[in-house]
Design a protein around this nucleic acid. Structure first.
Lengths: 230, 230
DNA sequence: CAAAAGAGTAACCGATTTGTAACTTGTTGT
DNA sequence: ACAACAAGTTACAAATCGGTTACTCTTTTG
């Protein structure tokens, strides 16, 4: 068994040959209807990757997506139906999607992307070395140095965003979007510094010489040590 | 496949013949070592039931248990090792365990209890009628009447406790423990009324004539309509 | 090296959550 | 029916969280 996948779609998520293709590639598939309850339904299944068919006409596709993104901490691939160019892709990536297949694509390509994202996220994530800190999305805490530290909502979002980028540098704008969502423009840029500062005080041994959350000057921040998502 | 089980133990969770017995009964088993990271590890596996071997000498068995209880929303059966009489059972049930096998028992009996709790919790929970409200533990919200309503931490705990009792009446003391944990004694009894009141204002059509959270006079509260956990 | 810009820190303020106190409403038993 | 008590409700106070402002420290660049 390779992993569990959830397909979210407007109607009939398991129709067509994509599900069959994925199943043959070794994934276990669960279909979920797009709607307010979709995020919990997906969460309940604990998928390792999500395919999100984004209909062109649905009013609440975006709201559901945002909730989904806040609920499941795994790669989400967006597949726009009958719409979307570059602009759309930029928008959904800003919202936290991991990929967006806007151009017409073949099933083989879709499969390749799914595999790539799955590997990227799960390759090291499943090797559970004891010393790697783990975040607990339910209690919004992190287990680090054998201790559980409670995080606030914003601290949690910040950290989760960094984790999602797997050690890569994340620029300030993206972090702000991850924390404040749509209203990110309206909150001062220094609030991000403050949020980082407060998070460091909680998880770093010496906040002045951070081991985890390291500044990339003029760009943003990155995780210098691995922290596992959940 | 019947369901996924997690066994939490001090060491070697999959040793002995209990795991084999459960596997033969059709359950998928995952072992998790007792420790600070146990709740997340269990959460990651999304079990449908948890067996918790409670060692007599472990200092943090209780703390881990409390976190586990707050992390996974499924039946937890406690199996004390070399200790515990009635008092111990009462204590762990207060902490939110669903069962505690203190008396010496046979494996057949253990299996029977596992099956019983699994059925009790999952029989109706898996039939997903659209109209049944669902709580989302990650965002601490409830999807009810096609709408997502954000709950506060206390409201969420209260509701989750009621859900866990599956429509049965829950007495005030137990609800207070579920919300305030160890410090429940120190908070005034009327705070529970207030918490109920606020939750009703959020989820009931008419808080004066509640459809969901109904008062059992002189005892406590119960859910008159089903709400699904997650 | 000095100025400019980015990042860190401290102080403070406002919004939300959550608790207590006081009062009203409803239920039970005599 | 009415006294006693449980539950519901309102008002307000304390605690927490999260944000802006203002200032300092560090890095980059002319």
């Amino acid at each position: 068994m390779k992993g569990r996948l959830v397909i979210v779609a407007d109607r009939d998520p398991l129709r067509g040959d994509v599900p069959e293709l994925l199943r043959q590639a070794g994934y276990e598939i669960k279909g979920v209807l797009l709607g307010p309850q979709a995020p919990v339904a997906a969460y309940r299944f604990m998928p390792e990757l999500v395919l999100y068919y984004w209909p062109s006409d649905s009013a609440d596709a975006e709201e559901v997506f945002v909730h989904l993104r806040n609920t499941v901490d795994v790669p989400i691939l967006v597949l726009p139906i009958d719409h979307g160019g570059k602009d759309f892709a930029v928008r959904v990536l800003r919202l936290g999607a991991d990929d967006c297949l806007c151009e017409p694509y073949r099933n083989r390509e879709l499969l390749a992307r799914v595999k790539a994202h799955w590997r990227r996220y799960w390759q090291w994530s499943k090797a559970d070395a004891q010393e790697i800190p783990v975040i607990d999305p339910v209690s919004r805490s992190i287990i680090i140095r054998e201790q559980r530290v409670k995080l606030t909502e914003n601290e949690y979002r910040l950290l989760r965003c960094l984790i999602r980028h797997d050690g890569g540098v994340v620029n300030r704008q993206e972090l702000r979007n991850a924390i404040w969502g749509a209203g990110a423009e309206r909150v001062s840029s220094t609030s991000l510094n403050l949020c980082v500062h407060r998070l460091r005080k909680k998880i770093e041994r010496d906040p002045h010489r951070p081991e985890y959350i390291v500044t990339k000057w003029g760009v943003g921040y990155y995780l210098a040590r691995k922290v596992r998502g959940a």
